[in-house]
Simulated assay, not measured.
Amino acid sequence: MHVPDSTFRGFANPVDPSPAELRAWAYHPDSVPLTSMPQDWDLLVSGDHLVTTLFELAMDTACPARRFALHCLYIYAADGIRTGFRAHPKRRLRKLVEHAELTGDHLVRTWAYNTRVLLERPDLFDYHDWCEGGLVRENRRIG
């Protein structure tokens, strides 16, 4: 994976970062601490515009902000499933899950497994687990 330039100069608009800005920040997350980001920044960046970038970051075991990216993937999956895929395309989520199952490490494969379980059993949604990082911190399978 290509590691961006050694300096990150900040976001032009932290509420709507570009994929390149997010990628650069992810390799230098101490340059702009999460505590200085807008409230619920994780929810703001967990959309279609950045999901491919977030997935790439979550797949990169050398990325310092990998766990943050994985957390955002949990938000993205839950948001799509809970809205009946009005928020995000089902096809895109399924492709990410399939790619994670084939090439991801244990952390990413656990996300893929949990996403498949939630697809089958939306009643297993727990806000703390999916949107507040519980599943990332505990790295456990649901169901």
Rank of each mutant, 00 (worst) to 15 (best):
V3E: 12
V3Y: 08
P4M: 04
P4V: 06
P4S: 12
T7A: 14
T7H: 15
F8M: 12
F8P: 09
R9Y: 11
G10M: 11
G10Y: 11
G10R: 13
F11Q: 06
F11P: 04
N13V: 03
V15Y: 13
V15E: 14
V15M: 10
E21P: 11
L22E: 02
L22K: 03
L22F: 07
L22I: 07
R23V: 07
R23S: 05
A24W: 00
W25A: 01
P29L: 05
P29D: 02
D30G: 15
S31Q: 15
V32N: 02
P33T: 07
P33D: 08
L34N: 01
L34P: 06
T35Q: 12
S36M: 12
S36D: 12
M37N: 02
M37L: 13
P38E: 00
Q39C: 02
Q39N: 09
W41A: 00
D42C: 10
D42P: 05
V45Y: 02
G47R: 13
D48E: 15
D48K: 12
L50C: 05
L50D: 03
V51D: 01
T52R: 14
T52G: 15
T53M: 04
T53R: 01
L54R: 09
L54H: 10
F55S: 11
E56Q: 13
L57C: 07
A58H: 03
A58D: 02
M59R: 10
M59D: 03
M59H: 10
M59S: 11
D60Q: 09
C63W: 04
P64H: 13
P64N: 07
F68C: 02
A69L: 05
H71C: 02
H71G: 00
H71K: 13
Y74D: 05
Y74G: 05
I75W: 01
Y76A: 05
A78S: 15
D79A: 13
D79T: 15
G80Y: 02
I81V: 13
I81E: 01
I81P: 00
R82Y: 01
R82Q: 15
T83R: 13
R86G: 00
A87P: 04
H88Q: 07
H88A: 11
P89E: 11
R92C: 01
K95E: 14
K95G: 08
H99P: 00
A100P: 11
L102H: 14
D105L: 13
D105G: 15
H106R: 15
H106C: 06
L107F: 14
R109E: 08
R109I: 05
R109Q: 15
W111S: 07
A112E: 08
Y113Q: 09
Y113A: 08
T115Q: 03
V117A: 07
V117D: 03
V117P: 02
L118R: 01
L118G: 00
E120R: 14
E120N: 12
E120F: 07
P122E: 00
P122K: 05
D123E: 15
L124D: 09
F125V: 00
F125M: 05
F125P: 02
D126C: 09
Y127K: 11
D129V: 03
W130C: 00
G133A: 09
G134N: 04
E138R: 15
N139E: 10
R141G: 12
R141T: 09
R141F: 01
R141I: 01
I142L: 09
I142P: 08
